[in-house]
């Protein structure tokens, strides 16, 4: 009797904590959606934020270009190596082009591209907005009759939603190109077969799937990173924590969403 009572208490406590955590997360999700939706609804409000959107797009897009190119190239190269190793066992090296292109377009481009943007740009968005809150710059904007949701959040959300698909498209092209170099020049796969199989096996359906993923990921990254910054606790520690959390949540979110989307678009 007494033993089961003693066992129950920690168990109850555990489920209590779990439940509270779940409720808290749910509440945050609701809050994030509301804030994001509010910011997005301000797209129709005057004054237009075109200039700020372009500035953000430039910072995000051009700023992430090099890292996207490098990761794209090495992903394509390693895929070609690994693919060749596996395919050679079945004597079907000619399929290498199709293998590399499909993996990159359907899966690795969107996911790895998104990861790179999260690490390179997403974290800095969260930190920047968090610091603006700590130093009361968002309050100052409000008092100068400039809505920080419209001026700070909106351009960043839209810019990520547009920049990520474009960056991922570049990732795909560079990855496939680098795969070709390794496959054809280094491993001596027949160039005709490489390209022909790739063109034959990759369908528009695959490409649309990749695009859908990258648009959804871009949008998600923008929403999560701006939200975490805007709602971070206004202390040095709070901003640091929010930045780490933004990276973790966005990355995990991308993977979960990736599974959901793949199961729909398969």
């Amino acid at each position: 009797m007494s033993e089961s009572g003693m066992n129950q208490a920690p168990a109850l406590q555990f489920f209590g904590r779990l439940g509270r955590r779940a409720l808290c997360s749910l509440e945050q999700l609701g809050d994030a959606t509301r804030l994001g939706a509010h910011a997005l609804s301000l797209i129709v409000a005057r004054p237009w934020q075109g200039k700020h959107f372009i500035l953000q797009l430039y910072a995000l897009g051009v700023g992430s270009l090099i890292i996207i190119a490098i990761t794209g190239a090495f992903t394509g190269m390693v895929l070609a190596l690994q693919g060749y190793y596996t395919l050679a066992k079945f004597g079907s090296e000619s399929l290498l082009g199709a293998g590399v292109a499909l993996s990159i377009i359907r899966e690795l481009g969107p996911v790895l591209g998104a990861f790179m943007v999260i690490g390179r740009a997403g974290s800095s968005i969260t930190a920047e907005i968090g610091i603006m809150r700590v130093t009361e710059q968002t309050d100052a904007l409000e008092m100068m009759a400039v809505n920080p949701k419209q001026r700070i959040l909106l351009p960043r959300i839209i810019a990520t939603a547009i920049a990520v698909p474009l960056l991922i498209a570049i990732f795909d092209v560079i990855g496939i190109g680098a795969g070709y170099v390794v496959g054809v020049e280094l491993l001596h796969v027949n160039p005709g077969a490489y390209v022909a199989e790739m063109v034959a096996k990759v369908t528009m359906h695959d490409i649309y799937g990749g695009w859908t993923k990258s648009i959804v990921f871009g949008f998600m990254i923008g929403m999560i990173c701006t939200y975490m910054g805007y709602r971070s606790e206004p202390t040095t520690e709070g901003v640091a924590r929010a930045t780490t959390q933004a990276v973790v949540i966005a990355s995990v979110g991308v993977l979960i969403m990736d599974y959901i989307l793949t199961s729909f678009f398969l």
């Binding site: 710059q137 100052a140 008092m143």
Partner: peptide, 13 residues
């Protein structure tokens, strides 16, 4: 129509 001077200035960095 309002102006505000913040205790810690809050200039845009």
């Amino acid at each position: 129509q309002m102006g505000m001077l913040f205790q810690y200035s809050a200039l845009l960095n």
